[in-house]
Simulated assay, not measured.
Amino acid sequence: MPIIHKLMSVLALVLVLALPAGAGEISPREAIQHLGDSATVVGVVSQVSNSGKGTTFINFGGRYPNHVFYAVIFRSHGHKFPSVYALEGNTVAISGTIELYKGKPQIILSSPDQVQVR
């Protein structure tokens, strides 16, 4: 019987080590539970908007201020995302580290590689 326990322990360890680092793919509503994790948030873009200072916001789970998650593109990186407004209404995957800003989870985008239309 002890050999079975050892095999089960080894199997459990292998399964844990096989899991990817970070949170993997999550919904916009789950993002709040993964602060500090590197993850891919997948959902339908509710709204794309621009601030007066040139910051672009990609909102998920509702329009501002009722959104549950958003991606941010600062003006200095805006030129890398020429088709950002075409994301509205589409299912999009946003990858990066989830941070909290003013009570909402966000991912800051600096590269188009962080955005994938599904």
Rank of each mutant, 00 (worst) to 15 (best):
Y101W: 13
I107H: 02
H77G: 06
G61Q: 10
N90W: 07
P105M: 05
V117M: 11
R29K: 13
I32W: 01
T97E: 15
F69P: 00
A86N: 15
L100Y: 04
K6Q: 14
L13F: 15
P82A: 13
V16H: 09
L7D: 11
P105Y: 09
S9W: 12
T56Q: 07
Q114Y: 10
A12C: 06
G96R: 04
N90V: 05
I73T: 04
F57I: 00
I3H: 13
I107D: 02
Q116G: 08
V48N: 03
P112V: 13
P65R: 11
N50A: 07
D113Q: 13
K80W: 03
A21Y: 08
L15F: 12
N66D: 15
Y64M: 04
I73L: 03
T56C: 07
T56H: 09
F74W: 12
V44Y: 04
F74E: 06
Q106G: 02
I73D: 05
F81N: 03
F69M: 07
Q114H: 09
F57D: 01
S9C: 10
V92E: 05
P65Q: 11
V44F: 03
E25W: 11
S110P: 01
L15W: 03
A93K: 13
T40R: 07
A23D: 12
G61H: 00
V92P: 01
A23S: 14
K80I: 05
T91V: 15
Y64N: 14
I73Q: 00
D113Y: 09
I58P: 00
V68H: 02
I94E: 02
P2T: 14
G89P: 05
V115Q: 03
F57Y: 15
M1L: 14
A93N: 08
E99F: 10
P28T: 08
T97M: 13
P20Y: 08
L13S: 14
S111Q: 12
A21R: 06
A93Y: 06
P82C: 08
I58A: 01
G22H: 07
S49Q: 00
S27N: 10
T55W: 00
L100C: 04
L35K: 13
T56M: 08
L11H: 05
S38C: 09
L13Q: 13
L7P: 04
P82M: 13
I32C: 10
Q116F: 08
V84F: 01
F74H: 13
S9G: 13
V14M: 12
V115H: 01
T97C: 06
L7S: 12
Y64C: 04
A71Y: 02
I58E: 02
S49P: 02
F74K: 06
S49E: 03
I73F: 06
K102G: 04
S76R: 11
E88R: 05
Q33P: 00
P28M: 03
A71Q: 02
K53A: 05
V10N: 11
P20A: 12
Y101A: 10
K6V: 15
R63Q: 13
T40Y: 06
K104Y: 06
T91F: 07
K102T: 10
A23R: 07
V44K: 08
S110M: 09
